[in-house]
Design a protein around this nucleic acid. Structure first.
Length: 336
DNA sequence: CAAACGTGGAT
DNA sequence: TATCCAAGTTT
């Protein structure tokens, strides 16, 4: 049954696989740099969101040596808006290890890849299989969903992971593990979707225990999620001579390493309330109010030209607050 | 092992 | 509007 299911999947993939910028054409060799970069960007991030970033990154930094030589601040700026910013810091760190310790070539074993910054169990297996043709058991959210349905695994996550791994291992071929993994992920992304899966056109339907039970959407069984708390905060828009004061956030923690508006008062000034921005993070919702002021003296700090604020590489929360700052500025100019 | 860590699109 | 969720990793 496993072999039949695998063959059905691979035949479907041969015809219906997605064409993606980081994917090699049939018969072509995948570029480990592009595979790695795409895998990092795709962590918890949709293909549609990744595409323009992948295009810009590979244009600006065509290979791992170029990325290793880049200024970290430039990389953070290019990553702005994509989220999970620790990935960008780890991206640079990883490129530098590969350039410095591995002669500019990615290691081709799962174990060696796993030691690199930002590469965990999934990504190490994916790169080993897709870029280097190694046999590796590749398990992401798609594979978890497809396998838990295929075998109607009723154990809730995360306890089900041991069985999912064993089942995926049994399905994974000795040759072509990369195509198999990508086929599973394409199936999960386009047919075996979380909601309203398209079982009518699924190549695995004849083999799928969840389909035969009649309610595939029930799998994988997930634990209830914790409620998302709401928090409040204040950001400060301080102007001087056509420039606005920015800060570099600490390397770790929320929006770590990114440029931002100050979130503590940077100066004595006549602050004006310029409204608020609601922003939802994974683990809490935030209402951040914006206080604006103009000063004649110029405190020490990073002053960014206001007309080029769009190029600063602010994460989305602060980009939205900056929009408010610009609106405040317009209103102040009208009044004057 | 649970919690921290972003964002935008779909329902 | 509220909730879910997308090619996870780190602490």
């Amino acid at each position: 049954m496993s072999v039949d299911a695998r063959q059905s999947l691979l035949c479907w993939y041969a015809v219906d696989k997605r064409r993606l910028p980081w994917r090699a054409e049939a018969g072509e060799r995948a570029d480990p740099y592009r595979v790695w970069l795409s895998e990092i960007m795709l962590q918890q991030t949709t293909v549609a969101a990744v595409k323009p970033y992948f295009e810009r990154f590979t244009t600006k930094w065509p290979d791992v040596g170029a990325l290793a030589a880049a200024d970290e601040a430039d990389v953070m700026r290019e990553w702005a808006g994509l989220g999970y910013y620790a990935r960008a810091r780890n991206l640079v760190a990883c490129a530098r290890v590969v350039a410095g310790d591995h002669g500019g070539r990615f290691p081709d074993s799962e174990a060696a890849l796993l030691k690199l910054p930002g590469i965990g169990r999934y990504t190490a297996a994916a790169i080993a299989a897709i870029a280097f043709g190694r046999r590796a058991v590749v398990i992401d959210g798609n594979v978890e969903r497809v396998v838990s349905r295929l075998y109607a695994i009723a154990t809730p996550l995360p306890a089900a992971r041991a069985e999912i791994r064993a089942r995926t291992d049994a399905l994974t071929p000795d040759e072509g593990a990369g195509d198999f993994a990508q086929a599973m992920m394409d199936l999960g992304a386009t047919i075996c979707t979380p909601r309203r899966p398209a079982c009518a056109i699924c190549p695995l339907r004849p083999h799928c225990a969840a389909f035969h039970e009649g309610d595939p959407e029930r799998y994988p069984v997930k634990p209830p999620k914790a409620a998302r708390p709401r928090r409040t905060g204040t950001a400060f828009w301080l102007e001087h001579d056509g420039h606005v004061l920015l800060v570099r956030r600490p390397a770790s923690g929320l929006l770590g390493g990114m440029l931002a508006l100050p979130t503590e008062s940077p100066a004595q000034a006549k602050w004006t309330d310029a409204g608020a921005v609601d922003h939802v993070f994974t683990h809490f919702a935030l209402t951040m109010t914006l206080s604006c002021a103009r000063v004649d003296a110029r405190p020490e700090g990073l002053w960014w030209p206001i007309e080029r604020i769009g190029e600063a590489g602010l994460p989305t929360l602060f980009a939205r607050l900056a929009e408010r700052g610009l609106a405040w500025r317009e209103a102040a100019a009208q009044a004057a």
